[in-house]
Design a binder for these strands. Structure first.
Lengths: 102, 102
DNA sequence: TAAGTATATCGCAAATGTACGATTGATATT
DNA sequence: AATATCAATCGTACATTTGCGATATACTTA
């Protein structure tokens, strides 16, 4: 991508849709989101128990979901509580809906 | 992924959602799909004119969209006509809808 | 202040994704 | 048969993603 001389321009909505799609493009992250949907919030530790991956790996996936805007974390010492970011969740929902309905 | 001894199991729907999400995870592919949505069908050559990337690169993106099941190609010598795969399109739409609605 | 707990970040290795030019294959035209 | 056209595939380079263990950070509790 960076090697291309011509830097392609994409629509704002396209960029955003891609950001969400990328975040959804890994089964572990879907699992995390499904888990969150069911109980609205959870701690990192809960996920480590449920998903057979290293704690660092899960933390990384959480970071990506956070960067994509799909979840948010609030410090709740000594733990961190993660929740769905409802505003962006709705945004993503509409973007995908619109994309498939066109 | 393959280095992990424990091979994680995921739900069938999760695997499918991930496959679609991955395919949507690149702006060029979104652009191709948007283009197809507007005129229902097109040739590879049309895309090469519209998108400033090498023919081989576009062909590769088309392959990925086809592998994901979102488009289908019918030979129309000497060209190949690509269309949205409507059945899978609907499937993807429902999967994303269900995912976000839960 | 020392030790414990929960989580993030670092550094690395392997796998996957993205892009290109060159080549190949298949069909149509001369 | 020779040439032209369209698109897929190959080989390669570089970037990004995914995973791990080790370490760092931040806050609590003893």
């Amino acid at each position: 991508m960076k090697r291309t001389s011509k830097n392609i321009e994409y629509l704002e909505d396209t960029e955003e849709l891609v950001r969400f799609a990328k975040a959804l493009g890994h089964p572990t992250r879907i699992k995390i989101l499904n888990y969150l949907e069911n109980r609205s919030c959870c701690f990192t530790g809960d996920l480590v128990e449920v998903i057979p991956l290293a704690q660092s790996t899960i933390s990384q996936h959480l970071k990506e979901l956070k960067d994509a805007g799909l979840i948010q974390g609030e410090v709740n010492p000594p733990k961190i509580k993660y929740c769905i970011n409802k505003k962006n969740w709705e945004k993503a929902k509409v973007l995908f809906q619109t994309f498939f309905d066109k």
